[in-house]
Amino acid sequence: MARLVVLPFTKSIEIAYKSLQARFFRSLVTTLTLVLAVSFLTFSQVNINIADSLLASGDPDMCHMLMRCGYDIMPGDTSLAASPKQRWIVILSLLVCVVGIINAQLMSVTERFREIGTMKCLGALDRFIVRLFVMEATIQGLAGAVSGAIFGGVVAIISALFRFGPESLGNLPWPEIATSLATATLTGIALSLAGVLYPAVIAARMQPVEAMRVEQ
């Protein structure tokens, strides 16, 4: 007889989803960190996409407007890149976001020590526990990253409307914007997963005997 314990994939999604639902407010706060970081990333990327397309249009008025708005354009430039300072700010914001997620997930692990111990007493393997936490983080990551990307993109387009005027919206670079949104979404999911790994390993290593401890 095969002495194996199992946790089917669909069942782990179901458990992870219910767990998030039950701690809705807490998960919302964690997700919000991600929404903010991802929308900031998207905002700066889409801004560059729009400015790039204005520059590529070759219209001298547009170039003037870009310079007025603070872009350094040298004669002959065909595309704009984020300045090193901008890049650093984005990277820092993403780092702060990961640290925030690690913190929130560690709290969630501590809060669920007994629950994890109980699952282990019922026969859960270490990897079931890791999987549950990773699933939760993926759902949170997906929700946070998608809404963050959409939010950041919309804000970038609205800000372009005010900075460069309505005509700038005439030929928005949709393929580039879509690429920026997709990249930001993937980055968001990756951040969420990076944030959960350490807490999930801590949870998985917990000894089932913890579940027997009486103090709450």
Binding site: R3, I15, E115, K120, C121, G123, M212
Partner: peptide, 26 residues
């Protein structure tokens, strides 16, 4: 090993705790 121990806990032993320890979200 870890797998056999998990199997033992799952199939051979049923645990009842002082603090009930039901999974609260289920």
């Amino acid at each position: 090993d870890a797998y056999e121990l998990a199997w033992l806990r799952c199939r051979k032993i049923g645990y009842i705790f002082q603090t009930f320890n039901l999974i609260p979200v289920m």
